[in-house]
């Protein structure tokens, strides 16, 4: 099973995301201060801190579905604002899409991320170019699927997703906000990077950091997987 992700690796992904959010809390809040209400970093860090605490106290998370459901419910209950329902829905939909498996294969991971994207769209009604987290997440999911379809390894596909997410995040700077509180700024929202898209790029960065597995020749022994 060269290209599969265990529950343990998924947990490491979530914990790595929590560390990145904590490290970038002030940065995310500063981005939000320019076009929102200056609480994105605070809210996300409160949520991910609660997620890590929940993972620490959980005795044994049996499946990817159970793990993602726990992450999603915790975020919904602790983050508030728009980010709580959006990032919560992202993980809840991933959980539903995983189905009853103990280990995710590459195709299952791609389907879970596609479902996450669809959940975010259903919840937030965002479209391409609205200057939201969608603008980072959508190209990332497309890139992941394209890389896998082309026969690439899961690790390479996740790296491609991260790169596409970063490009998508960067592209939000030039966009005019059409959703959320930033939309009230109209033209004044142009020139500022979207904080939600920035958090999505951190989530992808965390994935690229933990998912390089044994089949990825370029990352060698970095993963620490047995």
């Amino acid at each position: 099973m060269p290209d599969s992700i265990s529950c343990e690796v998924l947990q490491r992904w979530i914990r790595a995301f929590a560390r990145l959010v904590a490290d970038n809390e002030e940065y995310l809040t500063r981005l939000d201060a320019s076009i929102g209400d200056a609480d994105h970093g605070t809210n996300m860090n409160r949520g991910m801190t609660a997620v890590v605490a929940a993972l620490d106290s959980a005795e044994n998370v049996a499946s990817p579905a159970a793990l993602f459901k726990q992450v999603g419910m915790t975020l919904v209950s602790t983050v508030g604002g728009a980010s709580g329902p959006l990032f919560g829905t992202l993980f809840l939909r991933m959980g539903t899409a995983c189905g009853d498996v103990e280990v995710l294969d590459a195709g299952g991971f791609a389907r879970a991320l596609r479902a996450a994207l669809e959940g975010v769209v259903a919840r937030g009604k965002a479209e391409t170019g609205d200057k939201t987290m969608y603008d980072a997440l959508a190209p990332a999911v497309d890139a992941l699927e394209a890389a896998l379809d082309a026969g690439g390894s899961l690790a390479a596909a996740v790296r491609a997703a991260h790169a596409a997410g970063v490009s998508g995040r960067d592209a939000t700077t030039a966009m005019l906000a059409r959703k959320g509180r930033a939309s009230y700024l109209g033209e004044r929202s142009v020139g500022h990077q979207d904080p939600g898209a920035t958090s999505v790029a951190l989530l992808l960065q965390a994935a690229a950091g933990v998912i390089p597995a044994r089949s990825d020749s370029s990352s060698g022994s970095a993963s620490g997987q047995p």
Binding site: G80, G81, A82, G84, G88, T89, R123, G124, K179, G180
Partner: peptide, 9 residues
């Protein structure tokens, strides 16, 4: 945005 989504859920 936040109020509507949280009440929806």
């Amino acid at each position: 945005t936040g109020d509507v989504m949280n009440f929806d859920m």
